[in-house]
Amino acid sequence: MTDAVAALEAAGVGMSCSRRRGAVVEDCSFRLPQGRICALVGPNGAGKTTLLRLAAGLLRPARGTLSVLGRTPAAARGRVAYVAQSKPLHPHLSVADTLRFGAELNRDTGRWDQPAAERIAYGDETLDPFTKIRALSGGQRTRVALALALGKRAELMLLDEPMGDLDPLARRQLTGALMAAAESGTTIVMSSHVITELESSCDFLLLVAGGRLRLAGALEEVVSAHTLLTGTSALDTSRQTVIEQRSVGRGRTALVRADGAPVGEWLAERPTVEEVVLAHLRNTQAPPLLAEEAAPESARRAPHARSQENAA
């Protein structure tokens, strides 16, 4: 599995938009194996969009390297579908023309799937093929943009806030279509603010905050690396990394990365994905965690060195 080409592999990727404002993305190193459904999570301005644009080959990293399906982002473009948050489409084309446009642009790959694209675009029977894009609602534009992405039958789909303006029904239907694509091997990266929604569909997590990678790895592995402790005694910080702790009445609760069993009388529970993510968003000083599968080839020799040295 480690020998297979990664869908995305970043080594020390950094990016700045202007000299004054500092880095938008800094020192990002991770590996996303193929076939995963990856949630890209982080607050506004964390660098999610920049990371996706870098992967799509629309930006060139200022520092470090990023490879997509084993190639440069530009060389991999034919096998990658990128849906930007603004869903840029030609406003004067009709829906049917837009799909035809997609078919023509992807003619040379021989992979374009017209029936699949039409199924997504006209799936809920509210879209008329002859409506111009400019007359569509935000949700309908999303539907057309995803129809193009799914019609392309890309090996890697990069989706920036794909579900943002969809109604619950369309959201369910289109997420279902994405999951079906994943079932046939497509790797998906989607950014979102809504963590609970990603929980049932994603199996890989990339958490960025302040331009830096905070958490990366298989969702299950990342969550089970953390424990939620409740008790009254003092925390032994030499044996565990405390991500966040709060006093509640007589006791305290803490989210920790435990290296050993906690000392004293602690109730240890498994945190939810949301609890792990929120704790890391509140405490951006917490050392980053790169779970084993997410460690890039370059870091594989000492996969845990990074989190150890940063542990306070």
């Binding site: 279902g176 994943a182 049932s200 994603c202 199996d203």
Partner: peptide
């Protein structure tokens, strides 16, 4: 099939 289930429920195919 896994595909039918994920299309209907929007959950991860591996699940």
């Amino acid at each position: 099939t896994a595909r039918e289930v994920v299309e209907a429920t929007a959950i991860n195919p591996n699940t």
